[in-house]
């Protein structure tokens, strides 16, 4: 079974990092993984997205037409990718910034106030981690503990232990919000 995800948002909302973290967790979990960024001349305030494929089998295309999961951190991302999501797929929407509902009725829509949840944990910038926690709970792609361990693998050499703990707590908060 392939899990195919698109994470999208404004540049600076951390969708690229959240995607890398899921890719690292998938690697540590023994899955085949691809992580493909949109890497145009993007900048803070522009849009960014990445595509992650997790599979038991060797992966063909890292390019995905119909993702089984979407994280939409802002309205342009929801507008752009909602129609592409596979039937019975999952959409995590950042309701802190997105006023509208998911229109599709054949998907599981999780509207969560990601910025507010992150702010309540003391770091509003961890909204991306809240989203990722919710997505792994809803899809069962990889265990929460594996993602939390991957935070240490990826950031351990450059981030403070406090920052790592905030990220892990944000992952757990997203996980519990579903």
């Amino acid at each position: 079974m392939d899990n195919t995800f698109i994470f999208a948002g404004f540049g600076g909302q951390g969708v690229i990092l959240a995607g890398k973290l899921l890719a690292q967790a998938g690697t540590e979990y023994g899955l085949h993984v691809t992580w493909l960024p949109s890497y145009g001349p993007e900048m803070r305030g522009g849009t960014a997205n990445c595509t992650i494929v997790l599979s038991d089998e060797p992966i063909g295309s890292p390019v995905v037409d119909t993702p089984t999961g979407l994280i939409a951190m802002n309205l342009p991302s929801l507008d752009r990718f909602e129609k592409a999501v596979a039937g019975s797929g999952t959409i995590v929407v950042n309701s802190s910034l997105v006023a509208r509902q998911v229109e599709r009725e054949d998907v599981r829509a999780l509207a969560l106030p990601l910025n507010d949840i992150a702010a309540s944990l003391g770091n509003p910038r961890a909204a991306n981690m809240v989203a990722l926690g919710a997505l792994v709970k809803a899809t069962g792609a990889v265990p929460l503990e594996t993602v939390q361990r991957a935070v240490t693998t990826m950031l351990g050499h450059k981030a403070s232990s406090e920052l790592i703990e905030v990220n892990k707590r944000a992952l757990a908060a997203g996980y519990e919000a579903v």
Binding site: K20, V33, T34, W35
Partner: peptide, 10 residues
């Protein structure tokens, strides 16, 4: 190509 250069895989 740019995709192979920029993407990540184990």
């Amino acid at each position: 190509d740019g995709m192979l250069g920029q993407m990540m895989e184990p």
